[in-house]
Amino acid sequence: MSGNGNAAATAEENSPKMRVIRVGTRKSQLARIQTDSVVATLKASYPGLQFEIIAMSTTGDKILDTALSKIGEKSLFTKELEHALEKNEVDLVVHSLKDLPTVLPPGFTIGAICKRENPHDAVVFHPKFVGKTLETLPEKSVVGTSSLRRAAQLQRKFPHLEFRSIRGNLNTRLRKLDEQQEFSAIILATAGLQRMGWHNRVGQILHPEECMYAVGQGALGVEVRAKDQDILDLVGVLHDPETLLRCIAERAFLRHLEGGCSVPVAVHTAMKDGQLYLTGGVWSLDGSDSIQETMQATIHVPAQHEDGPEDDPQLVGITARNIPRGPQLAAQNLGISLANLLLSKGAKNILDVARQLNDAH
């Protein structure tokens, strides 16, 4: 009898209710805020589980004197976190989706994509230029951005401005803007500013005609071990179906173009009346040469937790077992079709030249 009692006690200790789920994140304040929001949602869904947040620095956090596009290494903000995932030191990792490459290392998958916040870019102005827009900034004003995508589009749109690289986390960039006289304004992701509670610093939100956004911008991705079915089931509740389908289309477009950090590629997606609209573009580094096109596809946005595919093969690095396969494939095909259209119009040449120029500098 006593033996059975011990077995029952052991089973209770090993039951999922007692389990601590370890969540990996970057150390920056924004990353911690984003991770806290994901953990809060998981806690609400699984009140019996405990969650421990483990923060670590990544290569991208450490190399702050070089433009991201020049470092010449993929997975700048993800490699150390993936290493911890691989060694079973954490069970899942919360990322900004735009930091996750469209091809993940073997053994990993994006197990959830959370509801997207505003994906557009924002302009934050130096205190002396508050009330201005990019259009009304004085001639030769210097605007800071760490992104080739932003610089290429904005140089084309605002030729009277000069664009220079600015690195560091959000706090560091804002301090550089406010305390030094080098920059009249800087460009940042609206979602990051909003998550930090800095709505009052948003001086201008850039519309798609001015600057399309990065693939996955404004959404959070939760990376897990691809074979860890328990954790895949656990994080599945975080999937937002519309965000998922938009981001599958965007990531398929980028992957098929073979774009990345070192080339200016941008997108804009919208879901309306059962249609998914995808606009994508590529630019030369100075913005003088560009190709942009829009395509659409009829896609039914499923309700969360309709029964999805059981075999769960990944699409552009994403596993969404609780979302039907048909809409996911339709979104992926839309991204591939748009990429093929741009490639047929000469996108590869623009991107190759951009890559060579970026590598040469």
Rank of each mutant, 00 (worst) to 15 (best):
H83A: 12
A219N: 00
S37N: 14
L104H: 10
F158T: 14
G335R: 03
N340S: 08
R19G: 13
R225G: 05
I186F: 07
I187Q: 04
N333C: 01
E162H: 05
R149T: 02
F129W: 01
Q155K: 13
P138L: 10
I231P: 01
C247Y: 09
V316A: 11
Q292L: 12
E135R: 13
D289P: 15
L234Y: 01
G168R: 02
N88K: 14
C114A: 05
R156C: 09
E179L: 09
Q328W: 14
F108M: 03
P208L: 10
G144P: 02
I323P: 02
V265P: 05
D311K: 02
G216Q: 00
E242C: 02
D312R: 12
L161V: 07
N322M: 10
G346K: 01
A31C: 00
L343I: 03
R164D: 12
G236R: 13
Q181E: 14
T102F: 03
T41C: 10
L174Q: 05
L220H: 03
L97R: 02
H207I: 08
K62S: 13
E258M: 03
D36G: 13
V124T: 06
F125A: 05
S96I: 01
A297I: 00
L100T: 06
L285V: 09
T58K: 02
S165L: 06
A214T: 07
F125W: 12
K98A: 04
V215D: 03
S96T: 01
T25Q: 03
Y277A: 13
V38Q: 03
G168D: 01
D178N: 08
S146Y: 06
G218N: 00
T136F: 08
A152S: 07
I299W: 05
T319G: 06
E179I: 15
K176W: 10
R255L: 00
R321N: 06
C261K: 01
N118M: 11
L276F: 04
L104M: 13
L64G: 13
G218A: 05
K79A: 10
G236D: 15
I299V: 13
E135W: 11
D359E: 09
W283F: 02
S141V: 09
T41D: 10
N349R: 14
H239I: 09
V142F: 08
R26Y: 01
G216F: 05
T25E: 09
Q275R: 14
S28G: 11
Q229L: 09
Q217I: 03
I63F: 13
P324I: 05
N322P: 08
P105M: 09
E179S: 11
I113Q: 04
S344C: 07
L234C: 12
P309R: 10
V143H: 03
Q155E: 10
A360W: 01
Q314W: 10
G274K: 08
S75D: 06
E117G: 11
S96Q: 00
V123I: 13
N169E: 05
M271P: 02
L245W: 10
R251D: 02
R355L: 09
L193S: 08
Q217H: 04
L68N: 06
A320C: 06
I21D: 00
V130W: 06
S37E: 11
I21N: 03
P159K: 10
A112M: 02
F158W: 12
D307Y: 11
E242Y: 00
A249T: 14
R26N: 01
H126W: 05
V222R: 01
F253S: 03
A67M: 00
R150C: 06
G335D: 04
E86D: 13
A270S: 07
